[in-house]
């Protein structure tokens, strides 16, 4: 059971429309501290939009987004920035600053948000880059990197301030199987070391389930349920059941029938 003290983020009845199209129709979701929550669902259902609401990049038409109990749309910008310093984000396309080198990209949060000296910055950045097996890439520009390397630099930048919670927006999109596995490996490695809470938006099902403590399915603009991977695969909710069958094959549905 989830208790209030364990919950770090709560979305409560979040609605969002663009023009005449209503994308989110009352999203309710809780993210548990220290755990990995995966948001899955078909493309175009608003998975990334949920992340943007949590990050305060988009305001909901209705409903609340609470971070440690504070409504991020009702607090002052200074307080929101304080919250954001506890957050790391790996964007879908890594969103690296293309006019900066790898080193400067990773160093940016340290230079702008801390009073660290340049030698301290260098020490921390080198540590993060070696954690990501990116030694020797300091002076390269994002355009000179492969897709997998860009994601790793993005992850290094997301982790450079040792955030309490890290968001991953489609971390393996556009990568081949080997590179996807590599990103998952780095995810395991860094989460084990830094003990951060993770929220991952992905459609890399079922592989992504291996990372999950909780899986939430968004469909028809609402979170159908948020369950452990095992319970999710055996859920009796017809929409979840259909999703599981469509993405994992009939073996899971037959297992469900046996149960």
């Amino acid at each position: 059971m989830k208790t209030d003290s364990e919950i770090i983020i709560t979305l409560s009845d979040v609605w969002k429309s663009f023009g005449t199209q209503t994308v989110l129709k009352g999203i309710n979701l809780s993210v548990i501290d220290g755990k990995t929550t995966i948001i899955v669902g078909p493309s175009g259902q608003g998975k990334s939009l949920i992340l943007k609401h949590i990050l305060g990049l988009i305001k909901p038409d209705r409903g609340q987004v609470l971070f440690e109990g504070k409504d991020i749309n009702a607090i002052q910008k200074k307080e929101l920035n304080e919250i954001r310093t506890k957050i790391g984000v790996l964007f879908q396309n890594a969103a690296l600053f293309d006019s900066m080198t790898v080193f400067d990209n990773v160093a940016l949060p340290l230079r702008e948000k801390t009073v660290a000296s340049e030698s301290e910055v260098r020490e921390v950045v080198d540590e993060k880059l070696s954690l990501m097996d990116l030694r020797g890439s300091n002076d390269k520009y994002p355009a000179q990197l492969s897709g997998g390397m860009k994601k790793r630099v993005g992850l290094a930048r997301a982790l450079v301030l040792n955030p309490r919670i890290v968001f991953f927006d489609e971390p393996t999109t556009g990568l081949d199987v080997a590179l996807s596995n590599e990103i998952y490996r780095f995810f395991f490695k860094t989460q084990e070391k830094l003990k951060y809470t993770a929220v991952i938006v992905s459609h890399d099902v079922p592989k992504i389930f291996k990372l999950a403590d909780y899986v939430a399915l968004i469909s028809d603009g609402v979170i159908q349920d948020c369950l452990s991977p095992e319970d999710f695969q055996m859920s009796s909710n017809p929409i979840i059941k259909n999703f599981v069958e469509a993405t994992m094959g009939t073996i899971y549905s037959s297992e469900a029938m046996e149960v």
Binding site: L80, A95, F97, D98, E112
Partner: peptide, 14 residues
């Protein structure tokens, strides 16, 4: 369009 401005905001950089 490449989310670099979003990334800045997420890093609490104005």
């Amino acid at each position: 369009i490449s989310e670099q401005i979003d990334a800045l905001e997420c890093m609490a950089i104005d």
